[in-house]
Computed example of a mutant assay.
Amino acid sequence: MSEETIFTEVDEELRRERMRSIWRRVAPYVIGAAVAIVLLVAGNEGWSWWQKSNAARSSDQFYTAVELAEAGDVAAAEEALNTVIAEGSGQYPLLARFRQAALLASDGQTEEAVAAYDALSTDLPDQRMRALALVLAANLLVDAGDVGAVQSRISGLLAPEDPMRNSAREALGLTQYAAGDIDAARATFEEIIADPTGSMETLSRIQLYLAQLIAEGAADPAPVAAPDTAASEATPAE
């Protein structure tokens, strides 16, 4: 093996590691932003129920579980969350299930966490919560590079009107990159850039991904050719 070949392989590996490093830095924020949606829903519901004196107990139990998890007492947090799921009122059992899945993920139990999110995505009546569970599961599958597993979860979220579309695209693009398909990853990220409703935070992050992919030689996605209206309107000669 020539020295040039060795240097090329080392350079490519360094580039891949830079992309992985970017994802590791931003992953907590991506996932945290998604979880914040659930927290917001639960917070609004919790305030309403607190005023009516109906959910004070569930609220206390849930936030006790959160504090235990943050303190590193995973076993006690799990037990407290199970209590909320079994006995809680309002939206707190739902919030506890999401928090339980996140706790499994932070404890390194990725397969169990994905299974927990998958269960949420199939048995929740609220479509937004189902979509959130699917995106969170997809984010946990990024490092494995299993594009099929991610696509099976987020394919229904890619419609232009779906509010979770860019989160779904980001998970897909990162998984494509992890699988070594840098051209597909660039095409996916370009779709996010082209979305006029994308947030500045998301666009800034995607620009970092794209810069890395371009440095690695990812091909520029071919523009979609406009239909030849003249040809389509022409009537074949008889």
Rank of each mutant, 00 (worst) to 15 (best):
A69S: 14
V135M: 07
P125N: 07
D143K: 03
A131T: 02
Y177A: 15
D220S: 14
E111C: 03
T110Y: 03
V150L: 09
N44F: 05
E112A: 15
A222P: 00
D107K: 09
D183G: 12
L39M: 13
Q109R: 15
A27E: 13
P223H: 04
E3Q: 08
Q127G: 01
A149V: 13
I192M: 14
P236H: 04
P196E: 02
V74M: 10
L103H: 06
I182D: 01
T197A: 12
D195V: 10
A234T: 09
A230C: 07
V26F: 07
L132T: 02
V38P: 02
E233G: 00
I37H: 11
L208R: 02
E12A: 15
L94A: 03
R15Y: 06
R15A: 13
R97I: 05
T8C: 12
Y209T: 02
A149G: 10
A230I: 03
T202I: 14
A234Y: 12
A159P: 00
A144P: 09
A185K: 10
G46D: 06
L68Y: 02
V142T: 02
L103I: 05
L140Q: 10
E17G: 10
E170H: 01
A80R: 02
A116V: 04
S199I: 06
N82W: 03
Q91N: 14
A237T: 14
K52F: 00
R130T: 08
A237Q: 10
A138D: 06
A105L: 10
S59L: 08
V41S: 11
P163S: 05
T83A: 13
G43A: 12
N54M: 08
N166E: 09
I22A: 11
L124K: 02
A105M: 06
V66C: 09
Q61G: 00
E170V: 03
M200R: 12
V35I: 13
S155W: 01
S58Q: 14
G32H: 11
P236N: 07
S232G: 06
A185F: 08
I182Y: 02
S48F: 09
V30S: 04
K52T: 08
L213K: 02
S199R: 08
R24E: 13
S167R: 08
R186A: 11
N54G: 11
D107T: 11
V74Y: 06
L210P: 01
L124H: 01
V26I: 14
L141A: 04
D73R: 12
A168C: 12
A96K: 07
R165E: 07
A215V: 15
A133Y: 01
K52A: 13
Y117D: 00
S199Q: 11
P227Y: 01
L94N: 04
A102G: 10
F189Y: 09
G173R: 03
P227G: 05
Y177R: 12
P196N: 04
